[in-house]
Simulated scan of single mutants.
Amino acid sequence: MRLLAPDCTPVQRAAFERWRDADAAHAAAYREVALLWKLSKAAMQDPALAAAARRALQPEPRARQRRWLIPAFAAGFAALAVAAIVPRWLAPPADPAGITYTTSAGQQRTVTLSDGSSILLDTDSDVVVRYSARTRRVDLLRGQAQFSVQGNHAWPFVVHAGAGTVTAVGTQFQVRLDEQVTEVALLKGKLAIAAQAPGGATQDASLIGGQGLCYDQSGQISPVHNADLQQAKGWTQGQLFVHNWRLAELVAEMNRYSDTKLQLGDPSLQNVRISGVFRTSDQRTLLLLLQQGWAIRARRVSDTQIQLLR
């Protein structure tokens, strides 16, 4: 009301702009109020409501003893009209139909979105993108992705993954979805993370550039830690930086990038420690290095399976 008043001052408008820009929730709240104002204005122009108002203002003289019925009817009709409009406004709008983007094993793909943001999908990953007037929503269904987001405080960018959400405004970050945990690494900017337990309780956390965290399916968020930026940037360039990994971890990671899966044929190999830099697309060189540097041999058991033995 104040903004629409003719005597609204520049100081008041500036204060409003500061408030709206301070938080994406403020901007969303203002958009909702503006929408209700617009809907109520449209309701005022409804022919049925206008006719009821005219009847209420010009009652018939012969029905003077029942004049109260006419304005009461008009008021009731208006209330019904508003009651029909307001629930539709209050109810959350249906999610728009999503667009699905997918990569197969060994494939990476960059998707440029309508607002200039982009998603780099890692191997064997799925996302669904749903943009609406209220929010930019992306559902990470499987795998790993890097998000480069164009800033817009009034239009938050929200990634749904596992049991939580990651909300960004003008940032670059990565989200990885595993069976048990979801990992978040922030390359630059700021992030807000919310994780929800099955019972409905939530935990919140925030990150600044260079930090990371993870949360599990129970909604528990880990302490914030320094992200492994070398590892985070490495996979976007097809490289895997391995620092004292267990062989079982290395095999599991390399298997994400190939249809031919490596298998540990000897349980004693699981805890063999490996360090090095490997090309995610070059399984053959990995096998040569393992056989040259460690007491390991590779045996192909089928077209899609190679067994590692002592």
Results as ranks from 00 to 15, higher is better:
Arg137Val: 11
Pro10Asp: 06
Leu289Arg: 09
Asn255Ile: 04
Gln307His: 03
Ala97Gly: 11
Ala94Met: 06
Ala53Met: 13
Asn244His: 14
Ala24Glu: 03
Ser206Arg: 12
Ala163Val: 07
Gly200Asp: 13
Asp124Ser: 13
Thr182Leu: 04
Ser222Gln: 11
Trp37Ile: 15
Ala22Thr: 07
Ala94Gln: 09
Ser117Cys: 12
Met44Asn: 12
Gly199Cys: 08
Tyr257Cys: 06
Gly151Pro: 10
Thr285Glu: 13
Leu187Gly: 00
Asn271Tyr: 10
Trp245Gln: 02
Ala15His: 12
Trp68Lys: 14
Lys38Phe: 10
Arg256Cys: 06
Gly162Asp: 00
Asp126Ser: 14
Pro156Gln: 09
Asp178Arg: 06
Leu264Thr: 04
Gly293Thr: 01
Arg130Trp: 00
Ala48Trp: 11
Pro10Met: 08
Gln270His: 08
Ser118Lys: 04
Thr123Val: 02
Arg176Leu: 08
Asp139Ile: 05
Leu90Lys: 03
Asp122Glu: 07
Ala53Gly: 09
Ala74Glu: 03
Arg54Asp: 15
Gln150Phe: 12
Leu191Lys: 00
Ile221Arg: 00
Arg55Thr: 01
Val224Ala: 06
Thr202Ser: 10
Leu207Asp: 01
Ala195His: 00
Leu250Tyr: 01
Leu141Arg: 15
Ala295Lys: 15
Gln237Cys: 12
Gln45Asp: 14
Thr165Trp: 02
Arg297Trp: 11
Val127Lys: 05
Arg273Glu: 04
Asn226Phe: 01
